[in-house]
Amino acid sequence: QQIELKVGDWQSLQHIQSTAGTQWFMKEVEKRTNGKVKFVHFPAEQAAKARGLLDAAASGVVDIALTGSLYSPDRLPLNSVIGLPGLGNSAVAATKPLNDMVRNGLLRDEFISAGVVPLYAYALTPYQILLREKAVANVSDWDGLKIRTGGSTQALTARSMGATGISLPGPEVYTAVERGTVDGVLFPIPSVAPYNLQEVVKFISTNGSFGNFGCNLVINQATFDALPADVKEVMLEVGTEAALNVAKAQDDLSAGLLKEWAAQGITLIEFTPEQLKAYEDTLAPVSDEWVERIGKNNPNAKAVYEAFLKGVAAQ
């Protein structure tokens, strides 16, 4: 008989992560189960706020939800590893190890304890620096810059380079950059356009790795257990494909956007291998601090970080 599942996420229907990720997943599962599974989609925080979606799936308000690891760092502390700088230079590069570790590795248990089963996980494109007035090349160029950061890892990242990390709510970022309240902002390229930040910055880096963000599609544990074996299998199979599909789509979009904005007069910053090495060295203490602080309550923190690095390097 027909199985109907409610899906909640926070992006609009036009967002790349929705079209190439969540919606793509739903369509493929519907197709490959010959219509046995049907989804009812509640996009754009309709079902719950982004930060509440993990609980919404765990309690059964929805069956399936997209969750952001950094939206619930208290519930998914090890998964907050994705926020660290230096984990790969593309969405695909970070997604492969992330999805493996969330699905079957050291990052899985936190989801199970929260009452959900992870179907797939993907990373965004690594955060780049966008600047309104002055470019940066070397680490020393960051000295004294006011940088809008999202969350503590990014704030640490900015501070390690001598900049001041400034917290601002999303809706105030555009004004803050336009009026010069901040000198720059750390953002993943595909998220720049929804905020129209390309209108108010002159410089964008292309190959930095200043942290990342991880998204996980999760399903209520009891709902998952009650599914027929063949449906479970299809979901997990489609899940891995969806993770890579949405990662690649973001990388492609990012490349296209950068080209478009360069044509409109924005200067792209490409760090040299030496500069990238210097950033890596400068930012190493950020990861050390993460391992130390998360490690206090989670003995696996160091193992998680090292496994992630190894997974990135293995590609």
């Binding site: 208290d74 519930r75 502390p77 907050s80 969350g151 503590s152 602080r293 998360i294 206090k296 309550n297």
Partner: peptide, 10 residues
């Protein structure tokens, strides 16, 4: 659960 939000402080 001793939920900690790792921010500026824990």
């Amino acid at each position: 659960r001793d939920d900690i939000f790792m921010g500026t402080i824990d």
